[in-house]
Design a protein around this nucleic acid. Structure first.
Length: 422
RNA sequence: GGUGAGGUGGAUGAGCGGCUGAAAUCAGUAGUUUGCUAAACUGCCGUACGGGUUAAACUGUACCGCGGGUUCGAAUCCCGCCCUCACCGCCA
């Protein structure tokens, strides 16, 4: 959620930035500003009446103490009139506040200046590419066949037990998952991230604070009986560690990493694009999150991008880094870098990480602030990224490294997997 | 799931209809003092939204788990919800 003060500082600039993000109702900026102005006016009136009431109540108290019943009764009559005046003001205030937040919540975050213009994924900017695309033999097969051939994943079994999109990892397939999770966590903690193992379900407050509610409600699995949501990413519980907190400057930077399964309904997805591990309802992911001083967030963003890039390099996968264009970015993000790896048998790029700076947008809803040296409290900046999401990494590792009769694994995984190959 | 107790500021914890935005202690912070690490003393030390100011000072309102109610007035009384703790039951 944006701060009203940002809109007020330069409404025209804000509208322009919203257009870059292909937001359809930039005129909401004006509505918000006028709603905020009337909110202030109403509150001033309300406070004045309430103040009179408080004074009167005190006077009654003093009179009663002196035994002046008649005087007290006289004041009570005045109070009754004031209360009558107060009621409509209160309603108006509540109503205006409600409208204000309801409107404000519709505005997406403003894109950073480096964000390229554009609407569709084709207009994303390729920042750089790395790694080598392998040359596969004629008989190369996609990962959903490899996983069957080597008995690593059973998709049909998942159908039986739960439903489509819930793969069952078996034997070396399961161990590969475990190896990757542990390797990623080790890699992240070595870079100073503190490991968390969070709850995999969250309450409404948490889902609201990180922005899943109210707009992305349909994306999450909901346990209605207890009103809990299965997390779509570890970002939700881990970022909520800092909900409603005020940090000291010396607490910066807060660096957290967490493994979690991720649950996504992905309603409406189907077809070849979602075959095998390309898109599933439950998958494993290791996330990194930082909470930093506003002046440091872009420096930190670069650091996180470099971190994820190093991780991908260590896996010896061909990758590219995209800077998402205004129209393809997420609602809450000010700037996003997507990481894709090349799936050689499918001959397509698959997204495996997304690193974003939310600036103060998420912090505003989270109510995560810090007290500066001058004593003023202000919002922190939050950033997060995947390091990394497993399924597509696995898809690429299998496809790109397939040889006749075996699959080679990158050397960093050998100690974790206990073998150089499958 | 059953029974009992309870939810107050960073922590402990008092208050149980007006004098309480909230005692006290600890932690934190700024300073004074004592010839080291340490101790003593003094001040400051919640959040949000307003007014005010260059910035302060100052000032209004709200907030003592959340939401309602009673009352001129509620942290304090009443109702509902949520949560925590203890014991029992069940159980990885």
């Amino acid at each position: 959620m944006l701060q009203v003060s940002i809109l007020k500082a330069n409404p025209e600039l804000v509208k322009q930035q919203l257009k870059k993000k292909h937001f359809k109702q930039p005129e909401l900026v004006d509505s918000i500003i006028s709603l905020d102005d009337s909110r202030k006016k109403i509150q001033a009136e309300y406070d004045a009446v309430q103040s009179e009431l408080n004074t009167a109540a005190k006077a009654i108290g003093t009179m009663m103490g002196k035994g002046d019943k008649a005087g007290a009764d006289a004041v009570k009559l005045q109070v009754a009139a004031l209360k009558l005046a107060l009621e409509p003001l209160k309603q108006k205030m509540v109503e205006t506040e409600k409208q204000l937040t309801e409107t404000l919540i519709l505005l997406p975050n403003l894109p950073a200046t480096e964000v390229p213009e554009g609407k569709t994924p084709e207009e994303n900017e390729i920042v750089r590419t790395g790694g080598m695309v392998p040359i596969l033999g004629e008989d190369a097969i996609p990962h959903w066949e490899l996983t069957t051939q080597y008995n690593l994943i059973n998709f049909e079994l998942g159908n039986k037990i739960t439903g489509s999109g819930f793969p069952v990892y078996i034997g070396k397939g399961a161990k590969l998952q475990r190896s990757l999770i542990q390797y990623f966590l080790d890699f992240n903690t070595a870079a100073g991230y503190t490991e968390y193992l969070p709850p995999f379900m969250v309450n409404e407050d948490s889902a609201y604070a990180t922005g899943q509610l109210p707009d992305k409600e349909g994306q999450m699995y909901h346990a209605k009986e207890d009103n809990l949501y299965l997390i779509p990413t570890a970002e939700v519980p881990v970022t909520n560690v800092y909900r409603d907190t005020i940090l000291k400057e010396s607490d910066f930077p807060v660096k957290m990493t967490a493994y979690s399964p991720c649950f996504r309904r992905e309603a409406g997805s189907y077809g070849k694009e979602v075959r095998g591990l390309n898109r599933v309802h439950q998958f494993e992911k290791v996330e990194i999150i930082q909470i930093v001083h506003p002046e440091k967030s872009y420096e930190v963003l670069d650091e996180m991008v470099a971190h994820v890039e190093k991780l991908l390099q260590s896996l010896e996968l061909p990758y590219r880094i995209l800077r998402l264009c205004g129209g393809d970015m997420g609602f809450a993000s000010a700037i996003t870098y997507d990481f894709e790896v090349y799936s050689a048998a499918q001959q397509r790029w698959l997204e495996v990480s997304s690193v974003s700076n939310f600036e103060s947008f998420q912090a505003n809803r989270l109510k995560c602030r810090f007290k500066g040296i001058e004593g003023k409290t202000q919002l922190v900046h939050t950033l997060n990224g995947s390091a990394l999401a497993l399924p597509r990494i696995v898809a690429c590792l299998l496809e790109n490294n397939q040889k006749s009769g075996e699959i080679q694994l990158p050397s960093v995984l050998h100690p974790y997997f206990g073998s150089p190959k499958i």
